[in-house]
Design a protein around this nucleic acid. Structure first.
Lengths: 111, 111
DNA sequence: CAAACCGGTTTCTAATAAAAACCAGTTTTT
DNA sequence: AAAAACTGGTTTTTATTAGAAACCGGTTTG
């Protein structure tokens, strides 16, 4: 393959690349801890969506899901792990680089 | 939903968001016209991948696929349409904005 | 007491990315 | 001149998965 500077897009972190998860990750990156209702109100995602995407993020080790009882009711809170922060930063930096390269990209050898 | 500045990620153009297609689009954005073999050599994508992703991009009206004979052999070339350029620019600007907003929330990279 | 509500989870369906298999024709090998 | 290998792709197959909807065990409300 060539030395096209956009090639790194092919190895971008797909867990974070998914828009719904990127949104969740960006929220958890900024806030230290949020709960289910916060995500529901803040993101416009459905309940099912939040449950499955947060589970996936937990499976990948990017976030931690804590469940507790408040009185008799369940309460779920979400926190980003150190690994999650690292991967999120790496994703953002990679995407940023790619975009900058697109803006800078000059004519490649043509057909 | 809240007024989180990252929310626009949810309406990002998914046709372009797919890494393989973003790579193809970025190549076509920089070069006026490329052929199948160029994409094959430049991108590390498989033949099947190139065929299906370029077809999808054509279905969406983002690129035009031209087929011709060179001697007795088929030859396929790909060109970005005006709509494709517009959407690609819009995608890049949108992603850029989103990343900037993420950095504004926290700290910029490479600090 | 039943019906609606709450905070979630599980199930179902359709879309789809990627690789592999395939294909029609062409060139090379023997 | 057959057979084999190569070209430039396309179609098929397989596995994953995003999203919505249905569900669920409490709990408050009418």
């Amino acid at each position: 393959m060539g030395n096209n500077p956009i090639i790194p897009i092919l190895t971008i972190d797909r867990i974070i690349h998914e828009p719904a998860r990127m949104l969740i990750m960006s929220i958890l990156y900024a806030a230290s801890e949020v709960d289910f209702l916060f995500l529901l109100n803040e993101t416009d995602l459905t309940k099912g969506n939040i449950a499955t995407h947060t589970r996936k993020l937990e499976e990948e080790g990017y976030i931690k899901i804590k469940k507790e009882f408040i009185g008799k009711k369940t309460h779920s809170t979400y926190v980003m792990t150190t690994a999650g922060k690292k991967c999120f930063k790496a994703y953002c930096e990679s995407m940023y680089d790619i975009l900058i390269n697109i803006y800078d990209y000059k004519q490649p050898p043509n057909v």
